[in-house]
Design a protein around this nucleic acid. Structure first.
Lengths: 239, 239
DNA sequence: TAGTGGTCTAGACCACGGG
DNA sequence: CCGTGGTCTAGACCACTAA
Protein backbone atom coordinates (compact mmCIF):
# COMPACT_ATOMS: atom_id res chain seq x y z
CA UNK A 1 0.00 0.00 0.00
CA UNK A 2 1.35 3.36 -1.03
CA UNK A 3 0.76 6.39 1.07
CA UNK A 4 0.01 10.07 0.75
CA UNK A 5 0.67 12.48 3.58
CA UNK A 6 -2.19 14.44 5.04
CA UNK A 7 0.45 16.60 6.74
CA UNK A 8 1.66 17.79 3.35
CA UNK A 9 0.88 21.31 2.28
CA UNK A 10 -0.64 19.74 -0.80
CA UNK A 11 -4.13 18.34 -0.80
CA UNK A 12 -4.53 14.60 -1.07
CA UNK A 13 -6.03 14.85 -4.55
CA UNK A 14 -3.12 17.01 -5.72
CA UNK A 15 -0.64 14.51 -4.35
CA UNK A 16 -2.43 11.65 -6.03
CA UNK A 17 -2.68 13.56 -9.31
CA UNK A 18 1.04 14.28 -9.14
CA UNK A 19 1.79 10.65 -8.43
CA UNK A 20 -0.27 9.41 -11.34
CA UNK A 21 1.07 12.12 -13.64
CA UNK A 22 4.55 11.06 -12.73
CA UNK A 23 3.75 7.40 -13.28
CA UNK A 24 2.55 8.29 -16.76
CA UNK A 25 5.65 10.29 -17.59
CA UNK A 26 7.86 7.53 -16.22
CA UNK A 27 6.07 4.99 -18.31
CA UNK A 28 4.60 2.96 -15.48
CA UNK A 29 1.23 3.60 -17.08
CA UNK A 30 1.58 3.47 -20.82
CA UNK A 31 -0.38 5.10 -23.58
CA UNK A 32 -3.90 3.72 -24.05
CA UNK A 33 -3.39 1.51 -21.01
CA UNK A 34 -6.01 1.27 -18.28
CA UNK A 35 -5.00 2.70 -14.94
CA UNK A 36 -6.32 1.10 -11.70
CA UNK A 37 -10.02 1.61 -11.09
CA UNK A 38 -11.26 4.29 -8.71
CA UNK A 39 -11.96 1.66 -6.05
CA UNK A 40 -8.49 0.16 -6.45
CA UNK A 41 -6.79 3.56 -6.17
CA UNK A 42 -8.99 4.33 -3.21
CA UNK A 43 -7.71 1.15 -1.51
CA UNK A 44 -4.10 1.54 -2.66
CA UNK A 45 -3.74 4.96 -1.12
CA UNK A 46 -6.30 4.63 1.66
CA UNK A 47 -8.30 7.63 0.57
CA UNK A 48 -11.94 7.96 -0.33
CA UNK A 49 -13.26 7.39 -3.78
CA UNK A 50 -14.38 11.04 -4.07
CA UNK A 51 -10.82 12.16 -3.54
CA UNK A 52 -9.58 9.75 -6.17
CA UNK A 53 -12.23 11.06 -8.54
CA UNK A 54 -11.15 14.65 -7.93
CA UNK A 55 -7.52 13.77 -8.72
CA UNK A 56 -8.54 11.96 -11.88
CA UNK A 57 -10.73 14.90 -12.92
CA UNK A 58 -7.64 17.11 -12.86
CA UNK A 59 -5.72 14.76 -15.11
CA UNK A 60 -8.66 14.43 -17.47
CA UNK A 61 -8.77 18.21 -17.75
CA UNK A 62 -5.05 18.12 -18.53
CA UNK A 63 -5.94 15.59 -21.22
CA UNK A 64 -3.58 13.06 -19.72
CA UNK A 65 -6.40 10.65 -18.96
CA UNK A 66 -9.63 9.65 -20.65
CA UNK A 67 -12.55 8.07 -18.81
CA UNK A 68 -14.87 5.56 -20.44
CA UNK A 69 -18.05 4.75 -18.58
CA UNK A 70 -18.27 1.07 -17.78
CA UNK A 71 -14.75 0.32 -18.95
CA UNK A 72 -12.23 2.32 -17.00
CA UNK A 73 -9.81 5.21 -17.08
CA UNK A 74 -7.11 5.22 -19.72
CA UNK A 75 -3.91 7.08 -20.47
CA UNK A 76 -4.68 9.44 -23.35
CA UNK A 77 -2.88 8.90 -26.61
CA UNK A 78 -1.63 12.31 -27.72
CA UNK A 79 -0.41 14.95 -25.33
CA UNK A 80 0.98 18.43 -25.53
CA UNK A 81 -1.61 21.21 -25.45
CA UNK A 82 -2.66 22.42 -21.96
CA UNK A 83 -2.45 26.08 -22.91
CA UNK A 84 -5.25 27.89 -24.63
CA UNK A 85 -2.65 29.95 -26.38
CA UNK A 86 -0.33 27.09 -27.05
CA UNK A 87 0.20 26.00 -30.55
CA UNK A 88 -1.92 22.93 -30.52
CA UNK A 89 -5.18 24.64 -29.95
CA UNK A 90 -4.82 24.12 -33.66
CA UNK A 91 -6.56 20.91 -34.40
CA UNK A 92 -6.46 19.34 -37.75
CA UNK A 93 -9.59 18.91 -39.76
CA UNK A 94 -9.43 15.17 -39.60
CA UNK A 95 -9.94 15.40 -35.83
CA UNK A 96 -6.72 13.57 -35.50
CA UNK A 97 -5.03 12.09 -32.53
CA UNK A 98 -1.45 11.23 -31.80
CA UNK A 99 0.26 13.96 -33.79
CA UNK A 100 3.87 14.73 -33.23
CA UNK A 101 4.71 18.36 -32.59
CA UNK A 102 8.27 19.55 -33.11
CA UNK A 103 9.65 23.05 -32.65
CA UNK A 104 12.85 24.31 -34.23
CA UNK A 105 14.40 27.63 -33.34
CA UNK A 106 15.33 29.59 -36.43
CA UNK A 107 16.78 32.77 -35.06
CA UNK A 108 17.25 34.70 -31.85
CA UNK A 109 18.04 38.38 -32.18
CA UNK A 110 17.60 41.85 -30.78
CA UNK A 111 15.57 44.25 -32.86
CA UNK A 112 14.27 47.76 -32.84
CA UNK A 113 10.90 47.67 -31.10
CA UNK A 114 7.91 48.00 -33.37
CA UNK A 115 5.16 50.49 -32.71
CA UNK A 116 3.16 47.69 -31.11
CA UNK A 117 6.09 46.72 -28.88
CA UNK A 118 6.56 50.29 -27.64
CA UNK A 119 2.90 50.57 -26.79
CA UNK A 120 2.48 47.16 -25.20
CA UNK A 121 5.71 47.13 -23.20
CA UNK A 122 5.56 50.86 -22.42
CA UNK A 123 9.05 51.41 -23.78
CA UNK A 124 10.85 54.69 -24.09
CA UNK A 125 11.00 55.78 -27.66
CA UNK A 126 14.03 54.20 -29.33
CA UNK A 127 15.49 53.17 -26.01
CA UNK A 128 15.73 49.42 -25.58
CA UNK A 129 15.72 46.76 -28.19
CA UNK A 130 13.45 43.76 -27.85
CA UNK A 131 14.36 40.09 -27.83
CA UNK A 132 12.92 38.35 -30.86
CA UNK A 133 12.62 34.59 -31.04
CA UNK A 134 11.61 32.93 -34.28
CA UNK A 135 10.58 29.33 -34.26
CA UNK A 136 9.31 26.94 -36.88
CA UNK A 137 6.61 24.48 -35.93
CA UNK A 138 6.18 21.02 -37.39
CA UNK A 139 3.31 18.63 -37.00
CA UNK A 140 4.05 15.11 -38.13
CA UNK A 141 7.09 16.39 -39.93
CA UNK A 142 5.23 19.04 -41.92
CA UNK A 143 6.14 22.67 -41.34
CA UNK A 144 2.84 24.23 -40.49
CA UNK A 145 3.61 27.55 -38.85
CA UNK A 146 6.14 30.19 -37.94
CA UNK A 147 6.01 31.82 -34.55
CA UNK A 148 7.69 35.13 -33.82
CA UNK A 149 7.77 36.16 -30.19
CA UNK A 150 8.82 39.57 -28.91
CA UNK A 151 10.02 39.91 -25.30
CA UNK A 152 11.20 43.03 -23.50
CA UNK A 153 14.94 43.16 -22.82
CA UNK A 154 14.64 41.83 -19.26
CA UNK A 155 13.95 38.41 -20.72
CA UNK A 156 17.37 38.26 -22.32
CA UNK A 157 18.13 35.19 -20.21
CA UNK A 158 15.82 33.18 -22.49
CA UNK A 159 18.44 33.11 -25.22
CA UNK A 160 20.50 30.71 -23.13
CA UNK A 161 17.67 28.24 -22.81
CA UNK A 162 16.79 25.37 -25.07
CA UNK A 163 13.88 26.95 -26.87
CA UNK A 164 12.95 23.86 -28.79
CA UNK A 165 10.88 22.98 -25.75
CA UNK A 166 7.81 24.78 -24.56
CA UNK A 167 8.60 28.40 -23.78
CA UNK A 168 5.92 28.38 -21.14
CA UNK A 169 7.23 25.37 -19.27
CA UNK A 170 10.64 27.06 -19.06
CA UNK A 171 9.13 30.28 -17.78
CA UNK A 172 6.95 28.40 -15.34
CA UNK A 173 9.40 25.86 -13.96
CA UNK A 174 12.61 27.88 -13.84
CA UNK A 175 11.46 31.44 -13.41
CA UNK A 176 8.02 31.15 -11.83
CA UNK A 177 6.44 33.29 -14.48
CA UNK A 178 2.90 32.37 -15.37
CA UNK A 179 1.49 33.63 -18.65
CA UNK A 180 -2.13 34.68 -18.90
CA UNK A 181 -3.84 35.70 -22.07
CA UNK A 182 -4.44 39.30 -22.88
CA UNK A 183 -5.85 39.68 -26.35
CA UNK A 184 -5.89 37.65 -29.49
CA UNK A 185 -6.62 38.62 -33.06
CA UNK A 186 -6.90 36.45 -36.12
CA UNK A 187 -6.65 37.65 -39.68
CA UNK A 188 -5.61 36.52 -43.08
CA UNK A 189 -2.20 37.30 -44.55
CA UNK A 190 -0.31 36.12 -47.60
CA UNK A 191 2.96 34.24 -47.59
CA UNK A 192 6.07 36.34 -48.05
CA UNK A 193 9.04 34.89 -49.87
CA UNK A 194 10.66 33.74 -46.64
CA UNK A 195 7.43 32.30 -45.28
CA UNK A 196 6.67 30.48 -48.49
CA UNK A 197 10.12 28.89 -48.37
CA UNK A 198 9.90 27.81 -44.75
CA UNK A 199 6.36 26.51 -45.03
CA UNK A 200 6.81 25.02 -48.49
CA UNK A 201 3.83 26.75 -50.07
CA UNK A 202 3.59 29.03 -53.09
CA UNK A 203 4.34 32.67 -52.44
CA UNK A 204 1.16 34.59 -51.80
CA UNK A 205 -0.71 31.62 -50.33
CA UNK A 206 -3.35 32.70 -47.83
CA UNK A 207 -2.25 32.07 -44.25
CA UNK A 208 -3.76 32.69 -40.86
CA UNK A 209 -2.02 35.33 -38.81
CA UNK A 210 -2.67 35.05 -35.10
CA UNK A 211 -1.43 37.72 -32.78
CA UNK A 212 -1.41 37.24 -29.01
CA UNK A 213 -0.57 39.84 -26.44
CA UNK A 214 0.26 38.02 -23.23
CA UNK A 215 0.57 39.25 -19.65
CA UNK A 216 2.11 37.45 -16.70
CA UNK A 217 0.24 36.59 -13.53
CA UNK A 218 1.13 39.99 -12.05
CA UNK A 219 -0.43 41.61 -15.07
CA UNK A 220 2.85 42.87 -16.47
CA UNK A 221 3.21 42.69 -20.24
CA UNK A 222 5.12 39.50 -21.03
CA UNK A 223 5.33 39.13 -24.77
CA UNK A 224 3.72 39.63 -28.13
CA UNK A 225 3.47 36.54 -30.27
CA UNK A 226 2.65 36.36 -33.94
CA UNK A 227 1.97 33.02 -35.50
CA UNK A 228 1.66 32.50 -39.22
CA UNK A 229 -0.14 29.27 -39.94
CA UNK A 230 -0.88 27.22 -43.00
CA UNK A 231 -4.63 27.41 -43.37
CA UNK A 232 -5.03 24.56 -45.78
CA UNK A 233 -4.71 21.77 -43.26
CA UNK A 234 -5.65 23.25 -39.96
CA UNK A 235 -8.38 25.22 -38.35
CA UNK A 236 -8.42 27.17 -35.17
CA UNK A 237 -10.63 26.05 -32.31
CA UNK A 238 -11.55 28.37 -29.51
CA UNK A 239 -12.23 26.96 -26.06
CA UNK B 1 -38.60 26.19 -1.78
CA UNK B 2 -37.90 25.55 -5.45
CA UNK B 3 -37.67 22.06 -6.76
CA UNK B 4 -35.70 19.99 -9.22
CA UNK B 5 -37.01 16.73 -10.55
CA UNK B 6 -35.07 13.57 -9.93
CA UNK B 7 -37.30 11.97 -12.55
CA UNK B 8 -35.85 14.25 -15.20
CA UNK B 9 -33.46 12.80 -17.72
CA UNK B 10 -31.07 15.51 -16.65
CA UNK B 11 -28.94 15.16 -13.58
CA UNK B 12 -29.74 17.32 -10.59
CA UNK B 13 -26.54 19.33 -10.97
CA UNK B 14 -27.29 19.99 -14.65
CA UNK B 15 -30.79 21.16 -13.77
CA UNK B 16 -29.46 23.46 -11.07
CA UNK B 17 -26.74 24.81 -13.38
CA UNK B 18 -29.38 25.53 -16.03
CA UNK B 19 -31.59 27.26 -13.48
CA UNK B 20 -28.79 29.48 -12.22
CA UNK B 21 -27.55 30.19 -15.73
CA UNK B 22 -31.05 31.26 -16.65
CA UNK B 23 -31.38 33.42 -13.55
CA UNK B 24 -28.20 35.22 -14.55
CA UNK B 25 -29.38 35.83 -18.09
CA UNK B 26 -32.77 36.97 -16.83
CA UNK B 27 -31.05 39.43 -14.53
CA UNK B 28 -32.25 37.87 -11.27
CA UNK B 29 -28.59 37.63 -10.33
CA UNK B 30 -26.77 40.68 -11.55
CA UNK B 31 -23.19 41.27 -12.52
CA UNK B 32 -20.74 41.17 -9.61
CA UNK B 33 -23.57 40.22 -7.29
CA UNK B 34 -23.25 37.37 -4.79
CA UNK B 35 -25.44 34.36 -5.46
CA UNK B 36 -26.83 32.34 -2.53
CA UNK B 37 -24.24 30.33 -0.62
CA UNK B 38 -23.79 26.62 -1.21
CA UNK B 39 -25.67 25.84 1.99
CA UNK B 40 -28.52 28.13 1.02
CA UNK B 41 -28.81 26.60 -2.45
CA UNK B 42 -28.64 23.18 -0.87
CA UNK B 43 -31.63 24.09 1.32
CA UNK B 44 -33.54 25.97 -1.40
CA UNK B 45 -33.53 23.01 -3.74
CA UNK B 46 -33.33 20.21 -1.17
CA UNK B 47 -30.22 18.70 -2.63
CA UNK B 48 -26.87 17.96 -1.08
CA UNK B 49 -24.07 20.48 -0.93
CA UNK B 50 -21.86 18.30 -3.16
CA UNK B 51 -24.44 18.45 -5.89
CA UNK B 52 -24.67 22.21 -5.55
CA UNK B 53 -20.89 22.41 -5.78
CA UNK B 54 -20.84 20.33 -8.92
CA UNK B 55 -23.39 22.63 -10.57
CA UNK B 56 -21.43 25.70 -9.58
CA UNK B 57 -18.22 24.14 -10.87
CA UNK B 58 -19.82 23.90 -14.29
CA UNK B 59 -20.76 27.57 -14.31
CA UNK B 60 -17.32 28.57 -13.07
CA UNK B 61 -15.82 26.65 -15.99
CA UNK B 62 -18.16 28.58 -18.28
CA UNK B 63 -16.82 31.74 -16.67
CA UNK B 64 -20.31 32.78 -15.63
CA UNK B 65 -19.43 32.58 -11.93
CA UNK B 66 -16.36 33.32 -9.84
CA UNK B 67 -15.76 31.79 -6.42
CA UNK B 68 -13.90 33.63 -3.67
CA UNK B 69 -12.88 31.58 -0.68
CA UNK B 70 -14.41 32.92 2.51
CA UNK B 71 -16.61 35.44 0.69
CA UNK B 72 -18.95 33.73 -1.66
CA UNK B 73 -19.76 32.99 -5.28
CA UNK B 74 -20.27 35.92 -7.62
CA UNK B 75 -21.62 36.55 -11.09
CA UNK B 76 -18.61 37.22 -13.31
CA UNK B 77 -18.28 40.75 -14.63
CA UNK B 78 -17.13 40.58 -18.23
CA UNK B 79 -20.10 39.10 -19.99
CA UNK B 80 -19.14 38.53 -23.53
CA UNK B 81 -21.86 36.21 -24.72
CA UNK B 82 -23.92 38.61 -26.77
CA UNK B 83 -20.82 40.00 -28.31
CA UNK B 84 -18.48 37.11 -28.67
CA UNK B 85 -20.40 35.58 -31.50
CA UNK B 86 -22.00 38.73 -32.77
CA UNK B 87 -20.81 40.12 -35.97
CA UNK B 88 -19.15 43.16 -34.52
CA UNK B 89 -16.46 41.31 -32.68
CA UNK B 90 -15.03 42.01 -36.10
CA UNK B 91 -13.21 45.24 -35.79
CA UNK B 92 -11.57 46.88 -38.66
CA UNK B 93 -7.86 47.46 -38.79
CA UNK B 94 -8.27 51.17 -38.37
CA UNK B 95 -9.70 50.67 -34.87
CA UNK B 96 -13.10 51.59 -36.02
CA UNK B 97 -15.66 53.77 -34.47
CA UNK B 98 -18.95 54.90 -35.80
CA UNK B 99 -19.20 52.34 -38.55
CA UNK B 100 -22.59 51.56 -39.93
CA UNK B 101 -23.63 47.93 -39.85
CA UNK B 102 -26.46 46.81 -42.07
CA UNK B 103 -27.94 43.34 -42.42
CA UNK B 104 -29.94 42.15 -45.38
CA UNK B 105 -31.76 38.84 -45.46
CA UNK B 106 -31.04 36.93 -48.64
CA UNK B 107 -32.99 33.76 -48.23
CA UNK B 108 -35.00 31.77 -45.74
CA UNK B 109 -35.53 28.12 -46.50
CA UNK B 110 -35.88 24.62 -45.17
CA UNK B 111 -33.12 22.23 -46.04
CA UNK B 112 -32.01 18.68 -45.46
CA UNK B 113 -29.98 18.68 -42.24
CA UNK B 114 -26.26 18.32 -42.71
CA UNK B 115 -24.24 15.76 -40.82
CA UNK B 116 -23.27 18.50 -38.36
CA UNK B 117 -26.93 19.49 -37.89
CA UNK B 118 -27.97 15.93 -37.14
CA UNK B 119 -25.25 15.56 -34.57
CA UNK B 120 -25.64 18.94 -32.89
CA UNK B 121 -29.45 19.00 -32.78
CA UNK B 122 -29.74 15.24 -32.13
CA UNK B 123 -32.07 14.79 -35.09
CA UNK B 124 -33.48 11.55 -36.37
CA UNK B 125 -31.81 10.55 -39.58
CA UNK B 126 -33.57 12.25 -42.47
CA UNK B 127 -36.55 13.19 -40.32
CA UNK B 128 -36.93 16.93 -39.92
CA UNK B 129 -35.58 19.65 -42.11
CA UNK B 130 -33.76 22.59 -40.60
CA UNK B 131 -34.53 26.27 -40.96
CA UNK B 132 -31.76 28.04 -42.84
CA UNK B 133 -31.38 31.80 -42.74
CA UNK B 134 -28.90 33.49 -45.01
CA UNK B 135 -27.99 37.09 -44.40
CA UNK B 136 -25.57 39.50 -46.00
CA UNK B 137 -23.66 41.91 -43.80
CA UNK B 138 -22.56 45.37 -44.80
CA UNK B 139 -20.24 47.72 -42.99
CA UNK B 140 -20.28 51.29 -44.27
CA UNK B 141 -22.03 50.09 -47.37
CA UNK B 142 -19.47 47.42 -48.21
CA UNK B 143 -20.57 43.79 -48.24
CA UNK B 144 -18.15 42.14 -45.90
CA UNK B 145 -19.67 38.82 -44.91
CA UNK B 146 -22.32 36.20 -45.42
CA UNK B 147 -23.90 34.51 -42.45
CA UNK B 148 -25.75 31.21 -42.72
CA UNK B 149 -27.62 30.12 -39.63
CA UNK B 150 -29.20 26.70 -39.13
CA UNK B 151 -32.03 26.32 -36.59
CA UNK B 152 -34.00 23.20 -35.72
CA UNK B 153 -37.56 23.14 -37.01
CA UNK B 154 -39.06 24.41 -33.74
CA UNK B 155 -37.73 27.84 -34.57
CA UNK B 156 -39.87 28.08 -37.66
CA UNK B 157 -41.54 31.14 -36.12
CA UNK B 158 -38.40 33.12 -36.91
CA UNK B 159 -39.29 33.28 -40.57
CA UNK B 160 -42.11 35.68 -39.71
CA UNK B 161 -39.79 38.10 -37.95
CA UNK B 162 -37.89 40.99 -39.42
CA UNK B 163 -34.49 39.39 -39.60
CA UNK B 164 -32.72 42.51 -40.71
CA UNK B 165 -32.40 43.28 -37.01
CA UNK B 166 -30.31 41.36 -34.52
CA UNK B 167 -31.44 37.78 -34.31
CA UNK B 168 -30.44 37.69 -30.68
CA UNK B 169 -32.47 40.68 -29.62
CA UNK B 170 -35.54 39.06 -31.18
CA UNK B 171 -34.90 35.79 -29.40
CA UNK B 172 -34.22 37.54 -26.15
CA UNK B 173 -36.99 40.13 -26.09
CA UNK B 174 -39.84 38.20 -27.63
CA UNK B 175 -39.09 34.60 -26.80
CA UNK B 176 -36.91 34.73 -23.69
CA UNK B 177 -34.22 32.63 -25.30
CA UNK B 178 -30.70 33.45 -24.23
CA UNK B 179 -27.85 32.27 -26.40
CA UNK B 180 -24.65 31.09 -24.79
CA UNK B 181 -21.56 30.09 -26.67
CA UNK B 182 -20.67 26.50 -27.29
CA UNK B 183 -17.72 26.21 -29.60
CA UNK B 184 -16.12 28.32 -32.27
CA UNK B 185 -13.71 27.44 -35.03
CA UNK B 186 -11.94 29.67 -37.49
CA UNK B 187 -10.39 28.56 -40.73
CA UNK B 188 -9.62 29.76 -44.20
CA UNK B 189 -11.85 29.05 -47.17
CA UNK B 190 -12.00 30.30 -50.74
CA UNK B 191 -14.83 32.25 -52.33
CA UNK B 192 -17.32 30.21 -54.31
CA UNK B 193 -18.99 31.75 -57.34
CA UNK B 194 -21.98 32.90 -55.30
CA UNK B 195 -19.84 34.25 -52.50
CA UNK B 196 -17.58 36.13 -54.86
CA UNK B 197 -20.60 37.78 -56.44
CA UNK B 198 -22.22 38.77 -53.17
CA UNK B 199 -18.99 40.03 -51.62
CA UNK B 200 -17.66 41.58 -54.81
CA UNK B 201 -14.30 39.83 -54.74
CA UNK B 202 -12.62 37.59 -57.31
CA UNK B 203 -13.62 33.97 -57.20
CA UNK B 204 -11.17 31.97 -55.11
CA UNK B 205 -10.27 34.86 -52.84
CA UNK B 206 -9.22 33.68 -49.37
CA UNK B 207 -11.96 34.28 -46.79
CA UNK B 208 -12.33 33.59 -43.12
CA UNK B 209 -14.86 30.91 -42.23
CA UNK B 210 -16.13 31.13 -38.69
CA UNK B 211 -18.37 28.43 -37.34
CA UNK B 212 -20.23 28.81 -34.06
CA UNK B 213 -22.27 26.20 -32.30
CA UNK B 214 -24.57 27.94 -29.88
CA UNK B 215 -26.65 26.68 -26.95
CA UNK B 216 -29.43 28.46 -25.09
CA UNK B 217 -29.35 29.13 -21.37
CA UNK B 218 -31.01 25.80 -20.68
CA UNK B 219 -28.20 24.13 -22.56
CA UNK B 220 -30.32 23.04 -25.48
CA UNK B 221 -28.70 23.30 -28.90
CA UNK B 222 -29.92 26.55 -30.45
CA UNK B 223 -28.23 26.98 -33.78
CA UNK B 224 -25.15 26.50 -35.92
CA UNK B 225 -23.85 29.63 -37.57
CA UNK B 226 -21.33 29.87 -40.37
CA UNK B 227 -19.95 33.24 -41.30
CA UNK B 228 -17.82 33.81 -44.36
CA UNK B 229 -15.92 37.06 -44.04
CA UNK B 230 -13.73 39.14 -46.31
CA UNK B 231 -10.30 38.90 -44.77
CA UNK B 232 -8.75 41.81 -46.62
CA UNK B 233 -10.23 44.57 -44.55
CA UNK B 234 -11.10 43.04 -41.24
CA UNK B 235 -9.55 41.03 -38.51
CA UNK B 236 -11.12 38.98 -35.81
CA UNK B 237 -10.63 39.96 -32.19
CA UNK B 238 -11.18 37.53 -29.37
CA UNK B 239 -12.18 38.86 -25.97
C1' DT C 1 -17.06 34.88 15.92
C1' DA C 2 -20.13 33.65 12.14
C1' DG C 3 -20.39 32.55 7.45
C1' DT C 4 -18.22 31.32 3.30
C1' DG C 5 -15.98 28.04 0.15
C1' DG C 6 -12.31 23.84 0.22
C1' DT C 7 -11.26 19.15 1.45
C1' DC C 8 -12.44 14.59 2.70
C1' DT C 9 -15.06 10.57 4.20
C1' DA C 10 -18.22 6.33 3.84
C1' DG C 11 -21.70 4.72 1.81
C1' DA C 12 -25.75 4.18 -1.48
C1' DC C 13 -27.69 3.43 -5.91
C1' DC C 14 -27.59 3.95 -11.06
C1' DA C 15 -25.93 3.26 -16.00
C1' DC C 16 -22.84 1.32 -19.07
C1' DG C 17 -19.70 -2.40 -21.00
C1' DG C 18 -18.46 -6.98 -21.62
C1' DG C 19 -18.36 -11.76 -20.61
C1' DC D 1 -23.66 -11.42 -14.12
C1' DC D 2 -19.68 -8.40 -12.47
C1' DG D 3 -16.73 -4.40 -12.55
C1' DT D 4 -16.46 0.07 -14.23
C1' DG D 5 -17.39 5.06 -13.87
C1' DG D 6 -21.56 8.55 -12.78
C1' DT D 7 -24.63 10.59 -9.45
C1' DC D 8 -25.99 11.78 -4.93
C1' DT D 9 -26.25 12.00 0.11
C1' DA D 10 -25.10 13.56 5.05
C1' DG D 11 -21.87 14.93 7.68
C1' DA D 12 -17.14 16.32 9.40
C1' DC D 13 -13.40 19.48 9.74
C1' DC D 14 -10.33 23.11 7.71
C1' DA D 15 -9.03 27.82 5.71
C1' DC D 16 -10.29 32.18 4.54
C1' DT D 17 -12.92 36.77 5.09
C1' DA D 18 -15.12 40.14 7.51
C1' DA D 19 -17.38 42.43 11.30
Amino acid sequence: MKSLKSTSSMTLYEQLANTIRNDIYEGKFKQDERIPSELELSDMYSISRSTVRKAITLLVQEKLLVKIHGKGTFVASPKVVTNSHSFLSFTDNVKSMGHILVTKTIKISFQEPSHDDIEFFSLDESADEVLVIERLRFIDGIAIGIETVHFPKEYEFLKDENLDKSLYSILKDKYKIYPSMGSKTIEICYATLEESTLLDVPRGTALMLIEDKVFDSMNNPLHISKQVIRGDKFKYAIQ
